[in-house]
């Protein structure tokens, strides 16, 4: 992909709150180790999305900075997948420790299922299928508007 900074941020928010939200609502309750109740799963999922959106926006500035060192000013597909590791780790720490959005009693395994699958789905959609609906998106550096 060849995102611009604004394109990165827009794509993150749009995809997390459409595809990501749908995934949390529909598939979330059926994931292994999902949680005690559907409501709890949804709440945890919602908070995870919020953290990944907000903190991720800050991450985008870091990625954009690194992208400047690349001649092609591109962001390889593999990078888009792997930065899920650092983002996941930070999100987990934040969700576990005391923020207003914290999820009481969060443990690693359910978080990995929830966050990991959302990340994979959003990454996969952003690497092709999104263009079926938005053919201009890739030319606009990931911007929708």
């Amino acid at each position: 992909m060849t995102p611009t900074l604004l394109g990165r941020i827009q794509t993150r928010w749009v995809l997390l709150w459409t595809i990501g939200l749908a995934w949390v609502l529909v598939v979330g309750p059926f994931l292994p180790l999902a949680g005690p109740s559907v409501g709890a799963v949804w709440l945890a999922g919602f908070r995870t999305l919020l953290i990944v959106s907000i903190v991720g926006t800050a991450w985008e500035f870091v990625y954009h900075g690194l992208q400047q060192l690349r001649w092609d000013k591109d962001w390889p597909t593999l990078f888009g997948l792997l930065v899920g590791l650092n983002e996941g780790a930070v999100a987990y720490v934040l969700l576990r420790n005391g923020l207003p959005l914290a999820i009481p009693g969060l443990t690693v395994a359910p978080f990995v299922w929830q966050f990991g699958t959302v990340w994979l789905v959003v990454w996969a959609v952003s690497n092709g299928p999104i263009r079926v609906l938005f053919p201009r998106w890739r030319f606009a550096g990931g911007r929708f508007w």
Binding site: P3, T4, D72, K73, D74
Partner: peptide
Amino acid sequence: YQPFNYPKSSWGGQLRA
């Protein structure tokens, strides 16, 4: 050396903008 005849982002990223 570059992979394509222009940097990749000139088709749809920072350099296009």
